[in-house]
Structure formats: structure tokens, C-alpha cells
Design a protein around this nucleic acid. Structure first.
Length: 486
DNA sequence: GTAGGGTTAG
């Protein structure tokens, strides 16, 4: 056990009214402007997009532009076309946040030349790049398997008119940890802790990183070192460790740690309780999860929507959907507003229990609550339709997404492509090939495994010509060993 | 966009 004392600020609770729904009058309103624009971008030839956008009767604002970016998030190339086209607009100039979005998308597409050109343009217009911009670029490099570039970018920030400080240092540590490069982050901390005056947050980031890769003992070591250096652990520190124990299945250790937190008069908060409820539930200890949930209210710590989501999920998985729905209704009665995660958890539970019809009812309930189904909602519907052998229904859902309200993401394509193999129909493999081409077109990089599967399928069903086309695509994507490049 | 809790699937 750690030998440090808690010194934690009092927990503040939001009043319950914070969670209450505001009553809205139901009117049939036209689609929000960002939806219409997103569809316009998706269907317009890029060459004429600027003219089209200038003719579009709308007041351009940074908020609207952000809305369009969100809609186009899963179609990177179109999102960048939109950015460029609007950049030529006579009466509108992009904000720093629009540049950040564009940088994010270009980096995700691994168009690094575009990224650096955008950074230069930001600088020329005195819009940045800001520390946030660098955080985005570093994160994308780390996610693309280039953690060293991420570090170099952080170290070169000041060459781009952006100062380095403890905040940006902690950001780069977090970026490395979130891409599982925890050892690298820890080395960086050791090298620069003096220069940037590393604080509790820096160490919390590293400890959390080790917990994320299931190395809780190492997290403990890091925190011991932190204390030896005279830094005070915070409640966040304890919550990180607590979650670490439960993550690695150390239920006993987690529970003991929780008891010790209470004994030492830590101001245990809603995050602590949610961690324990979830931890117990995942371990199959549903009764204990519930007991902790009941206890927190008695202790004057109100559950949040996330706490309810944890409990509902756990009941779905380890108990029954029926009991989960009882809790869902109870949370509504108490005035909480479920979010899309809540709905997704319930809907997934229903699907898993084979109750597709009731799942669909919850989808309409979701819409009635002004909580639009998101890409995860669609993905889980597609997944469960496929599992039920109803491939056509899955494709139907997919078609609906494509119309622009919610563009498919990488998961959607992966699930759907896998399902094209279950019926052993030659036509399905052609669809799989088409999906593969479409996903690349939209800036997603299929795994080698996906390419090979589709290729084999096409070859076995006598579609040699199409297979060749896919092979060329794979080569273009750099997903072939170099000796096989076409 | 300086850290911690809730959505995925073997």
C-alpha cells in the first residue's frame, strides 16, 4: 500500500436540477443547416464547390463550420475539400479552430505535407499554431506509429512560435501514454522533469498509462517515486490506481484500496464510486456493485449519468436486460437525462438477448428524446443483424447511414465486410470488394487481414479481374510486403 | 486539448 496521505479538495456536487430535461415544444423543423451543407459537400463536384457554397444562402460562422466538420468527420477527403472550398469564399475567413479541424483530418489521412502547409498558413494569418494544434499533430503521429516524431514536434514547438510549458509537456506525455508508449513517456518525464517542473498531473498521466497496459504494479512504483520527490497525490491519483486494480482483475486489492481511501477520510467522489460499481460488475459481482451504488447515495454522493451507465451495462452483461431496464426507468424517474451511451448500452443489451424488436423501440425512444443515434448505435445494429444472419437488414441500416446523417466509420466497414463471408454467396464478395474500395476512398486504411480475406474470397469465387483491382488498391495503400508491390 | 469514471468483440 502506498504510504501517502490524502489531501484532497472537497467534492462538489451538482444539483440534481442540472440533470433535468428542459421541456421543449415539438415542432417539425427543417434539418439543421450543417446537415444540408454536409450533404451538399458530399454530392458536389469539388471543382465547383466554392461557387456552390457561395451561392448557399447561409450565414457562415465558426460554429456552423465546426458542425459541418463533425458531420464529415468520417469522410476525410470531403471534409478537406470543404475546408479548401470555403477558404476561397470571398466573405468568410477560417477561424483557428477550423484550421485545427483541418489539421486533425489531414494528419489522420497521413497527408503530412498538407498538415505542414496548413500550419504555415495558420502562422501567416496569425491564427496559430496553438498548443492545441501541436497536441493534435503529436497525437496523430503517435497513433500512426511515429511516437518519435510526436516527441520531436513537441520539442520544436518554439520554432513555430509556440512556447513550451508544463501544460504542453503533460500533453505530450499523455499523447504517448494514450498510444501505449508508456515507457517512452516515462523516459521523457525523467529527462525533462527538472526543466518543466513536472507535477502531480505529470505522474498521474504516467501511472494511468501503466494501468492502461495492465501494469498496475509499475504504476504503483511511479507513484511511490512521485511521493519521494515531495509531490502530493490527489484524489485523481487514487482513482487511477483503483481502476488499475479492477482492470487487472485484482478485485480484492481494489476493494481493500477503496476501504483504505474511506478510512483515510479521502473525499471519495462520484468517479471513485463509478469505478468500483463498474469494476465489481465486470468481475461478475453484481450484488456488490449494486450495494456500492446504493451506498453512495447514503454517503451524499449523487450518481452521475456515467454511474448509471456503468450499472446498466453491468446488469445487461452479468444479470438480465430486464433488470437493467428497471434501473434505466428509475433513472428517468429521478430526473436524469440519458445520453447516447445510456441508450446504446440498453439497445446492445436487448440485441444481445435476441430482442431486436424492443431494441428498435428504444431507437425511436432515443430519437423522441432528441438524442440522435450515433455511429456506435448504427454499428451495433449492423453487428447484431449480421449475427442473426439478416445480412440484408444490416445492409439496409448501412444504406441509411450513407445518406449523410451519420457517415460510417472504420468499425462499420470492418463489421460489414466480415459479414459478407457468412452466406458464402459470390455476390456478397463483390459487395465486400466495393466496400473495401469505398472505405479507402473515404480515408480509412483497411488492415492487411481485411485485404487478404477479400482477395481470397474473390479468387475462390472466380472474380480474378476484381481481385486484381483490389490488389492494386492494396499496393497503393502500402499494405503489401515490398517485394509484392505492383 | 494538463490527469481520473460510463459504449465494442474473444
Amino acid at each position: 500500500m502506498l504510504t501517502f496521505r490524502c489531501k484532497i479538495p472537497r467534492t462538489t456536487h451538482r444539483p440534481l436540477s442540472h440533470h433535468l430535461t428542459t421541456t421543449t415544444t415539438t415542432t417539425t423543423s427543417p434539418p439543421p443547416p450543417q446537415d444540408a451543407i454536409a450533404v451538399l459537400v458530399l454530392t458536389t463536384d469539388p471543382k465547383t464547390l466554392t461557387t456552390t457554397l457561395e451561392a448557399h444562402p447561409v450565414q457562415w460562422t465558426p460554429e456552423l463550420v465546426t458542425g459541418v466538420f463533425k458531420r464529415l468527420w468520417n469522410h476525410g477527403p470531403k471534409a478537406l475539400q470543404f475546408f479548401d472550398a470555403l477558404d476561397y469564399h470571398r466573405a468568410y475567413a477560417h477561424s483557428a479552430s477550423a484550421f485545427d479541424h483541418a489539421v486533425d483530418i489531414a494528419a489522420r489521412l497521413r497527408r503530412y505535407h498538407t498538415v505542414w502547409a496548413l500550419l504555415a498558413r495558420m502562422r501567416a494569418r496569425r491564427l496559430g499554431p496553438t498548443p492545441k494544434t501541436f497536441a493534435i499533430v503529436a497525437e496523430r503521429y503517435a497513433a500512426a506509429g511515429k511516437p518519435d516524431r510526436a516527441v520531436r514536434i513537441f520539442l520544436s514547438m518554439h520554432h513555430h512560435g509556440c512556447s513550451q510549458d508544463l501544460k504542453s509537456f503533460n500533453t505530450i506525455l499523455d499523447v504517448l501514454c494514450k498510444s501505449k508508449r508508456v515507457e517512452k513517456a516515462y523516459s521523457l518525464l525523467k529527462v525533462f522533469r527538472g526543466r518543466f517542473r513536472a507535477d502531480t498531473i505529470s505522474y498521474n498521466i504516467i501511472a494511468n498509462g501503466f494501468c492502461l497496459i495492465n501494469r498496475t504494479p509499475r504504476a504503483l512504483e511511479v507513484l511511490r517515486e512521485m511521493v519521494e520527490r515531495g509531490l502530493e497525490p490527489s484524489l485523481t491519483t487514487y482513482n487511477i490506481l483503483l481502476k488499475g486494480f479492477f482492470r487487472t482483475g485484482q478485485i480484492k486489492e481494489g476493494w481493500d484500496f477503496f476501504l483504505q481511501m474511506k478510512r483515510r477520510k479521502c473525499e471519495i467522489d462520484v468517479v471513485t464510486y463509478t469505478t468500483v460499481v463498474h469494476g465489481f460488475g465486470v468481475a461478475g459481482e453484481v450484488k456488490r456493485a449494486r450495494k456500492v451504488f446504493d451506498e453512495m447515495i447514503g454517503m451524499g454522493v449523487l450518481p452521475s449519468v456515467a454511474t448509471y451507465n456503468a450499472l446498466i451495462q453491468v446488469l445487461c452483461k452479468k444479470d438480465s436486460v430486464e433488470n437493467a431496464i428497471v434501473v434505466f426507468e428509475e433513472m428517468l424517474r429521478k430526473g436524469y437525462v440519458p445520453n447516447s451511451t445510456t441508450y446504446n448500452v440498453v439497445i446492445r443489451g436487448l440485441c444481445h438477448a435476441g430482442n431486436m424488436d424492443e431494441a428498435m423501440e428504444y431507437i425511436s425512444r432515443m430519437k423522441d428524446d432528441k438524442c440522435e443515434p450515433n455511429v456506435q448505435t448504427y454499428n451495433l445494429l449492423i453487428r447484431y443483424h449480421c449475427d442473426a444472419g439478416e445480412i440484408d437488414k444490416a445492409l439496409e441500416v448501412f444504406e441509411k447511414m450513407g445518406s449523410g446523417e451519420c457517415l460510417p466509420n472504420l468499425d462499420t466497414y470492418n463489421v460489414l465486410i466480415s459479414s459478407m463471408f457468412v452466406r458464402k454467396k459470390s455476390d456478397d464478395l463483390l459487395v465486400a470488394g466495393k466496400l473495401l474500395i469505398e472505405m479507402v476512398d473515404r480515408g480509412f486504411l483497411p488492415r492487411k487481414f481485411t485485404f487478404n480475406r477479400v482477395l481470397n474470397g474473390l479468387l475462390l469465387t472466380g472474380n480474378q479481374g476484381f481481385a486484381k483491382e483490389i490488389l492494386r488498391l492494396q499496393s497503393k495503400c502500402g499494405r503489401l510486403p515490398s517485394q509484392f508491390r505492383l
